[in-house]
């Protein structure tokens, strides 16, 4: 786990109530520096509410948090100097052109010199592929163009943290791909904290995730850890054996095997083995299966979960 100072966002027991309804329930969130952090949850899970608290747009009912070590309530303006934000359905100032809006946004941070301002604007327009539309009023932009402009606006001051609320939700597959590519390009410069319910995107670009459901944080951590499964590492194997009971007895004798299931399939047996010690599993499991010379291994894999599988399991488990 990263050192405490390596976390850009940290919240402690963050709670938000709206008219007696608890929208966010005691969330302890930790977003590591320079990560692309996917914030997952079904609609109404509380993702936008939590993001708004981080931005100082709404106040927590209880609990608190810090961004770059600054308090999210008392030092919100200081925090916002280092943040770029893309709202869920971006609406900007329609009468401005993309260039004017970028210039306006940049002037919240910098007053000049003019040539550097123009250079940065050109760079941002190029980043999101809007050079040709730079001087057109935003009211004529498509949804995808607005979304890409929103990313340019969020990034124009080179923030240390980008907060993107559903950056690809309203886009077609090409628009979505472009947004993900921009995010990947930006990762080396900044931390990206983004909410989404498009799980394929998360699995593709994120290195850490958190899952929120009904205001409660179900899990958070590096994506690989989560894809490996929350209840230990699982191996699956298909074997031909004359005595599956003996194989089961043999494998069950190892303390690092926490769960074992054998299911007969078409003259073979399918094993599902959960190990509590990753190293022991890697080094010894296959050897121990092959210990009985009559056993033939047809297939042996470490199980990789799909994020969707993990997500559905957790959200449904929580609802039960």
């Amino acid at each position: 786990m990263p050192d405490q100072t390596e976390y850009v966002i940290q919240t402690q027991a963050l709670v938000k109530n709206f008219a007696g309804v608890q929208a966010v329930k005691g969330v302890d969130l930790k977003v590591p520096k320079n990560s692309i952090f996917g914030f997952l949850g079904p609609n109404g899970a509380g993702k936008t509410t939590l993001m708004k608290m981080l931005l100082g747009l709404i106040r927590p009912t209880s609990g608190g948090g810090t961004i770059f070590g600054h308090d999210i309530v008392r030092e919100s303006v200081t925090i916002r100097e280092r943040i770029g934000y893309l709202p869920q359905q971006p609406r900007f100032i329609d009468h401005m052109t993309a260039r004017e809006l970028l210039e306006f946004t940049l002037h919240f941070y910098f007053k000049g010199p003019a040539n550097k301002i123009n250079q940065r604007i050109d760079e941002m327009l190029e980043l999101v592929g809007l050079e040709e539309k730079a001087n057109r009023p935003i009211k004529g932009f498509s949804g995808g163009e607005k979304q890409r402009l929103g990313i340019a606006l969020a990034q124009v001051n080179y923030p240390d943290l980008l907060i993107l609320d559903e950056p690809a939700a309203a886009l077609d597959p090409i628009g979505r791909m472009q947004v993900l590519q921009v995010m990947e390009r930006l990762q080396k410069h900044t931390t990206i904290f983004y909410s989404t319910h498009i799980l394929d995107d998360v699995q593709r670009v994120s290195d850490a995730v958190a899952i929120l459901n009904q205001g409660k944080l179900l899990v958070q951590g590096p994506i690989q850890e989560i894809l490996n499964g929350q209840n230990g590492i699982v191996y699956t194997s298909t074997v031909k054996t004359t005595d599956s009971a003996k194989l089961k007895q043999h494998l069950s004798s190892f303390p690092w095997i926490s769960h074992l299931a054998i299911q007969p399939t078409n003259g073979a047996a399918r094993l599902s083995i959960t190990v509590s010690d990753a190293e022991a599993g890697e080094k010894h499991l296959l050897r121990e299966i092959l210990r009985d010379e009559t056993t033939i291994v047809l297939e042996f894999n470490r199980k990789q979960y799909e994020l969707e599988e993990v997500f559905m399991e957790m959200v449904k488990g929580e609802e039960k």
């Binding site: 934000y85 709202p87 971006p90 609406r91 900007f92 919240f108 606006l153």
Partner: peptide, 14 residues
């Protein structure tokens, strides 16, 4: 109503 305010107030603005 149109949400511009969220975007504006997410900037370093009192």
């Amino acid at each position: 109503q149109n949400g511009t305010i969220h975007w504006l107030l997410s900037r370093p603005v009192q």
